[in-house]
């Protein structure tokens, strides 16, 4: 059974005013448990609105969000509990750090879940380690950390609730390449270790291509496709017409194909591209 489903889901802002705008328009979607989903789409495509409906922060105008087959807006549903199960990390989450120490900040979510001291302690230490924060840094005030460290501390705060679904809205925006890779590989390890479902909103095709098992492409409030990266990148023209850029490496291989050097697989990582080229070049050597 899928863990999260959207059925005929719609959200309209400012109904009845001149600014009425449908941000999510009759979306149907089914996400399997354990998937690592990259969510892409241009600004205003409805990504953030959809993500905020996933954990009950916004109530759909019409349609349903189902968690384990249960409507999260059903009268019998405990919505507080939904938010423990579906964790949401906002854009620039480091602005939300507010406690006196990093430790206390990460412990804030688990504390609200009324867990025992020992369990809270285990979770704080485990997630701090998962995002690469040291024992020393846990004792510091959040403002004493660097930008990248603050970002990771904020993400750890949501991870510590051990949600079954972890949603992150552009977690790498504004970070340098090393900081981006760090967060993404840590997420990947967390995903492997816990088996949780991850939804990662990103503007970087390069990033989602490298880490996600599925891509969800949104455009103008609708789902354009929900498929494996290979399947999505095969439709390069429609992606580019939506204002989304393919990874540079994918564009290079498309152009090579036009010049007669074509490969069966879609290429969206440099490493894989280099392997393909090397194999092809070596294969040809004996003929020279």
């Amino acid at each position: 059974m899928p863990i999260l489903e959207a059925k005929n889901l719609t959200y309209t802002y400012s109904i009845g005013s001149p600014f009425e705008k449908t941000a999510v328009d009759h979306i149907d979607l089914s996400i399997a448990e354990g998937e690592f989903v990259g969510v892409i789409g241009h600004t205003g495509s409805g990504k953030s609105t959809l993500m905020q409906m996933m954990n009950g922060l916004l109530q759909p105008t019409s349609g349903q969000i189902l968690l384990d087959g249960c409507d999260i807006w059903d009268k019998k549903t405990d919505r507080r509990n939904i938010r423990f199960q579906v964790g949401l990390v906002f854009q620039y989450p480091e602005y939300q750090l507010f406690e006196e120490t990093v430790y206390q900040d990460i412990a804030f979510g688990p504390k609200n879940m009324k867990l025992s001291e020992a369990e809270i302690d285990r979770r704080v230490r485990e997630t701090a380690e998962a995002v690469g924060l040291t024992e020393e840094q846990l004792k510091k005030a959040p403002y004493a950390l660097s930008g990248g460290q603050k970002r990771r501390a904020a993400i750890a705060g949501v991870m510590a609730m051990e949600p079954r679904v972890l949603i992150l809205d552009e977690p790498t925006a504004g970070l340098d390449p090393k900081g981006r890779t760090k967060i993404l590989t840590q997420l990947q390890a967390f995903h492997k270790r816990t088996g949780c479902t991850i939804l990662l909103v990103s503007h970087s095709m390069e990033d989602v291509a490298r880490y996600a098992s599925k891509l969800l492409v949104l455009s103008q409030a609708k789902v354009v496709c929900y498929d494996t990266p290979t399947g999505v990148f095969a439709q390069s023209q429609s992606l580019e017409s939506m204002g989304l850029a393919l990874p540079q490496i994918t564009r290079i291989f498309k152009q090579l194909a036009e010049k007669g050097i074509s490969f069966e697989d879609e290429v969206y990582t440099v490493k894989y591209g280099a392997e393909l080229l090397k194999t092809r070049l070596e294969g040809r050597n004996p003929e020279c």
Binding site: H42, T43, A173, G174, H203
Partner: peptide
């Protein structure tokens, strides 16, 4: 970093 918060279209 004028493009850090923009989508690919906005960046271009």
């Amino acid at each position: 970093e004028p493009t850090a918060m923009l989508d690919p279209q906005g960046r271009r």
